[in-house]
Design a protein around this nucleic acid. Structure first.
Lengths: 141, 141
DNA sequence: GAAAGTTTTTGGAAATTTTCCAAGGATGCT
DNA sequence: AGCATCCTTGGAAAATTTCCAAAAACTTTC
């Protein structure tokens, strides 16, 4: 695990961010989970064994990490901004029963052809959101 | 335009909603524009020539219209919930310069094949969000 | 390794957006 | 028209995010 910590430190430094315990913790937490937590969920998780990061710091850290491209937002529900440390291109699936979000690997869906779009519209990035079905936990038997 | 108004009234009634001036106005406004406005933008637009709908009513109307499936949310920016009266399946394009959102007709992108997804995951709906390029207003030169 | 110069953290206040509430008003049915 | 129900309203409340100035921490420099 020490190697993992070193790698996080090197990553943060490489992006020009100072390595503080709070920022480290936010990024480490996001890297370790795949449930696309909200800022509040991250704050609670970090502080569950004694206070380590204030609310304002978590927001600030998330913003800093997002600005340098280490994490990104996932917006699938009204009024809920979730975060994801998986910055490789990928798609999302949301369970229609419990709302859980899981990743869909990029190569599980074929590449799209944008030739039919109106001229002059050059695509830099796209993403597919899939609704329906049930996640592992909600699967009916 | 009278026919358009009658049609809106019939549509609302058919969904079991009472036709009030405020609810009519919210739906009419959304039908008439394609810029995916926020609740605040709708409120301001409706009240620009004298007060017609309170803030709470606009939110309430939007919620009622969404519950019966006449409008839907569009979530592309953090903390911003936009609304769209186009409920036919379609995709969205967001201009990377000004953030404007425009629709992409469903048949301009090929249908996706979900065979590669894990078993048991039946897809009920999906949607593609395209970032990049420039909208008509931001087109360079 | 201490001082200097930044950047970051913090708690609390403030801003923003959305929801709640109870009262009065409007709508659709008979 | 009368009635039951649903809707609107202003204001308060809730929920989420940002701002602020002071204190603390990180990095660099000497």
């Amino acid at each position: 695990m020490q190697q993992q910590a070193d790698k996080i430190i090197q990553t943060l430094k490489a992006k020009g961010l100072r390595v503080t315990p709070q920022r480290f913790a936010v990024y480490e937490d996001l890297l370790a989970r795949s449930d696309h937590p909200t800022a509040e969920q991250i704050t609670n998780h970090l502080n569950q064994d004694g206070p380590t990061s204030s609310q304002a710091t978590v927001y600030s850290s998330l913003q800093a990490l997002r600005e340098v491209g280490l994490i990104r937002e996932v917006l699938l529900e009204e009024g809920v901004c979730r975060y994801d440390a998986n910055i490789d291109p990928h798609h999302h699936f949301q369970c229609q029963s419990c709302g859980a979000i899981e990743d869909i690997a990029w190569d599980q869906l074929q590449d799209l052809d944008f030739k039919a779009l109106r001229p002059g519209l050059q695509v830099t990035h796209y993403e597919i959101t899939v609704h329906g079905g049930y996640c592992n936990r909600c699967r009916p038997e």
